[in-house]
Structures are given as structure tokens and as C-alpha cells.
Design a protein around this nucleic acid. Structure first.
Lengths: 189, 189
DNA sequence: TTACCAAACTAACAAGTGTTAGTTGAAAAT
DNA sequence: ATTTTCAACTAACACTTGTTAGTTTGGTAA
């Protein structure tokens, strides 16, 4: 019950392949080859291809939900909440760039868990938008279309998985700081 | 030779399906059903599934290349060049949101044309980055990491295909203006 | 030793894949 | 009136897909 390493190895390898070609284009034989085994052997560890995708995406989505809840409930300014959101994305993405690719690109291939995923995403975006709206109301944030601000921030943050692996020299803290500078100080009053 | 409408219908329908599920997950039978015909009949109009993807992606990529060339050669400030780049994305994306989805998500499934596509993308990003760097040198743009600025702008612009269809009420000019406000006035000095 | 168990294997399946060949009926061109 | 062209069709192909069943192997516990 403690060392589920083989299963996790498979899931991590799958995430890497999914990042390169997408869920649908990766076959169980591709995955098996990458693991150095035969396709049928994978089923000693996992139940189905779909279960792999579920394991990758849902755990990350829940990390975001939990992170957002903590931020929402923290007693700081709305600008500082936005900075925490930036750091949350940098943090989660740094630890699992491959998984983030699946979350971004293959969520629609979720079957049983699709509805749940969409619910989490919806709530997340609602919370995000509320921080921005409150920031505008309280004059922390420049008067501007809050949806465009969120869209701009969120798409940038969602694309971090593409960018972080190319900039290994930049550590997470520095990146979060630079990103906040570009994303937030721009809209800051 | 003038009215290639049937072929174009197939390509546009394919782009719509590719947007929803991705190139690999869309079968020729899916496409045929969406067109109201049998899979084999598609081949009276197109050569292969791969050719459809090529037709979708390469034409858009070349539009971007041409647009960027015009902008680079125009005699305006670097900030105004950035605003023109924003407008270029809004314009191309508005006219073909489905195709933009394929360009963003399925370019890696290009076969013969993959190298060519990557070359166009590389050049585009180099030009984009140069405008930002020059803008910083000439003190039009706030001193900041030019790559992060480009990354932030480009990922937002590349995600427009997700956003434009949801905001039909906003016309292209207004959207370009609002986006420039958020993306550029933030970094503007 | 014996029994057990995790984790690999081979073989096979039914269904689905992109694509080709050849055919048909209707419309357009001659 | 005849031929050609267009755009659909049926049938089939060779291959790939996710997955299951049953077997083998090597190490660990009894």
C-alpha cells in the first residue's frame, strides 16, 4: 500500500507521451514500449487507458481547487491573492509539467469524470473572476474588462507547462515574481 | 476549378470536429457522418486525412507570416507594432476559430509539412521578440524580461480561439482594443 | 521444500482504422 | 442522343486498437 511506484511510473510515462502526441494518438503499445514491457503487462497495474487519464487529470484539478480555496480564504488584498494564484500555477506546473499538458489538452477525453472536471474548472474560474472584480471595486485594479483580464492571465498560466521546461535555469520563485510583474503590475493601479 | 466548395466544406467540417476532439480522435467515418455521406466518398474530394490537416494549418500559418512581415516593415512605433500584432491575431482567429484550434493543438500531427510549419513558427516568434526587445531599448516598453512578455502575450493570443466564440457580442475591433489595453498598456511606460 | 504472489509474458479477440477499387445514377457537355 | 464528368455508393483490404485469458518466472514467506 505504500510503494505504488510501478503504477505511478506508468502514469508518469503516460503523461509524458500524452504531452507529446495527445491522449488519442498514444497507444497502449506505445506506452508499453516506453516502459520496456508488453502492452498486456500494463494491465497488471492499471485498469484501463481511461483510468490513466483520469489519474493524471483529476488529481491536478483537485490540487488547483484546494489551492484556490486557501487563497480565497486568506486575509490579504486582492492583488496579493492574484499573486498567490500566479504562484499556485507556477508551483503545480513546475512539479508536473506533463500532467498539466493532459489537463489542458485532453480533458475532453475524460469519460465518467468529465462532468466532475468541468464542475471544478467552472468553480475555479468563478473564484478567479471574483478576485478580479473585487479588486476593481476596491480600486486595487485598473478599471478594465474583468473577463479579459482573467482570460489573459489564465491562458498564460495554463500555458506554463510549455514554457517551464525550456527555462530550467529560472527557479519557481523567480518565475512567479517575473510573471506577476508582467501580468499584474500591468493592471495594477 | 473556381468553385471548390465541396472540398472546402469538408475541410471546414473537419476543422470543427478537430477542435472538439483533436485530429487523432476524429475518424474519417466521423467526418463523413458530419458531412452526411460515407467515408469512402470523402476521397472523391480529398487525398487523405493528413492532407486535410495540412490544408487547415499551413494556410493559417502563412497568413500569420505574411501579416507579421507587413507589420515588421511598417513605419510605426514598436508599441504600435504590438497593437497591430494583437489585431492580426484577433482578425485571423475571428475568421477561422476552428482552424486556429488545429493549429494550436494538432500541429505535431503534421507529417511532411511539420518542418516547414516549425520554421514559420520560429520565424514568427523571433520577429515578435525583436519588436519587444526594440521597444525596451527605445524605452517604449517597461524594462522587463522580454521573453516573459512575449510568452504572456502570445499564449493569450493563441488562446483567442477559445474565447471569441463565447463572446459573439464583442466585435473584432473592440476586442483588439480591449486586449491591447490589458496586454500592452500594462507593459507600456 | 512448498506455497504464494507480483509482474512479466504469449496469444488472441472483436471492433475500429484509413484507404482503395470498382460501380451507379444524375447532370452537363458534346 | 451520346458521352463525359461529378459525387455519391458498396464492399473490401490490411492493419491497428484496447483489452482479456491463461501462463510463466523469479523472489519471498511459510
Amino acid at each position: 500500500m505504500k510503494t505504488e511506484t510501478r503504477k505511478e511510473e506508468i502514469i508518469n510515462t503516460a503523461a509524458k507521451l500524452f504531452k507529446e502526441k495527445g491522449y488519442s494518438a498514444v497507444t497502449m503499445r506505445d506506452l508499453a514500449t516506453a516502459m520496456g514491457m508488453k502492452a498486456a503487462s500494463l494491465y497488471n497495474h492499471i485498469n484501463s487507458k481511461q483510468d490513466i487519464l483520469k489519474a493524471i487529470i483529476i488529481s491536478i484539478a483537485e490540487e488547483f481547487t484546494n489551492g484556490m480555496t486557501t487563497i480565497i480564504n486568506s486575509e490579504v488584498s486582492n492583488i496579493d491573492k492574484l499573486k498567490k494564484i500566479v504562484a499556485l500555477h507556477v508551483n503545480i506546473t513546475s512539479r508536473n509539467t506533463n500532467g498539466m499538458a493532459s489537463l489542458n489538452n485532453d480533458w475532453m477525453h475524460l469519460e465518467d469524470q468529465l462532468e466532475y472536471y468541468l464542475q471544478l474548472r467552472d468553480e475555479y474560474e468563478t473564484n478567479f473572476l471574483n478576485v478580479i472584480k473585487k479588486g476593481i471595486s476596491s480600486s486595487e485594479i485598473r478599471q478594465s474588462n474583468p473577463e479579459i483580464i482573467m482570460f489573459s492571465m489564465l491562458t498564460t498560466l495554463r500555458s506554463l507547462y510549455l514554457w517551464i521546461p525550456k527555462k530550467e535555469d529560472l527557479n519557481a520563485n523567480d518565475l512567479a515574481k517575473s510573471l506577476s510583474e508582467v501580468l499584474i503590475d500591468g493592471i495594477n493601479i
